[in-house]
Design a protein around this nucleic acid. Sequence first.
DNA 1: ACGGTAGAACACTAGTACTG
DNA 2: CAGTACTAGTGTTCTACCGT
Length: 226
Amino acid sequence: MTGRTYGQFCGVARALELVGERWSLLVVRDLLLGPKRYTDLRQTLPKIPASILSARLNELEQAGVIRRRVLPQLDAAVVYELTEYGNELEPIMLQLGLWGARSLGEPGMDDVFTLDSAILSLYTTFRPEYAAGAHVTYEVHYGNMVVHAMVDDGMLKVAEGAYPDADLVIVPMGSIKPMLAGEMTPRQALDSGAVRVTGSPELLTRFAEMFRIPPAPARVAGLAVR
DNA sequence: ACGGTAGAACACTAGTACTG
DNA sequence: CAGTACTAGTGTTCTACCGT
């Protein structure tokens, strides 16, 4: 939040004044999964200059979106976490992420895909109405990152790491987005080698039903718009 | 009223140094 | 080591002005 305003008595304008600066929402995104230290944020946002991160943290703190907390440890580490007000951004961020995902093309050479992004992408695309009555655990590999998603009757819990008793282990060879966007069926993904699984292939079909990206908008359909 | 342009202001970056 | 602050350079946006 800088000193500048849009000069409009409008909630959207106010929201943009609070979290609309470059990098601000990505800081909020990375704090949705829990408190982080300054250096954690530098790792999840490798392209943000230190001075900008410092400025954004101060601005978001002043805006009441995040708070600083000193951990009761010997090193007195400082962590940043969302306030109650900041936490109210969670459903908005998930909706925004899903909206943006529709226009995602292929990842760029220097694009980063962090563990947090992997976890959030599963929350973003999850459709509870398609998971009613389902009790299944997936382990998903993204390169050397592994997350697991536990679906329990319309509820979802995603966490870092492998899950030894996962019902299905999914290993995409590239981006999993074409399958989630319906650009290829789970069967096609398996047959083409785009996705490899350990477990019943039927569970991959269920996965593609429960985790879904709506079709790309017509203007950018089929384009690698980034 | 509209479009183009120049200068000012602002935002961002990379690098470095400083503090506790 | 974690976090902050500063600087110089670059790019972007805003504003005022001018001509059509």
